[in-house]
Amino acid sequence: MKIDDKLALNLFHVDSEAHIKVDKEKCRKCPHKVCTRVCPVENYTLEGDELVFAWEGCLECGTCNIACDQGAITWDYPRGGHGICFRF
């Protein structure tokens, strides 16, 4: 089952602004781009050499924040009532 199909089952109240800020200058120099592997919703992807970040499917787990050793991520929660709403 693809991750996009899984996320389509979840209830999100997507905020218009990203709650996680990614400094792509730092990503450009990052040798491992481990975020593209550890994020459980694959919010971090590579287009060519460029890191692309989408926040819409974020489950607010915090994995990227701890895995990133380049200081490229400023992690915060979405605004109150926004983001993922788990039903189970």
């Binding site: 459980p40 489950l59 915090g62 189970f88």
Partner: peptide, 9 residues
């Protein structure tokens, strides 16, 4: 049938 996907630390 999968009805929700969750992740957490």
């Amino acid at each position: 049938k999968t009805i929700e996907y969750q992740a957490h630390l």
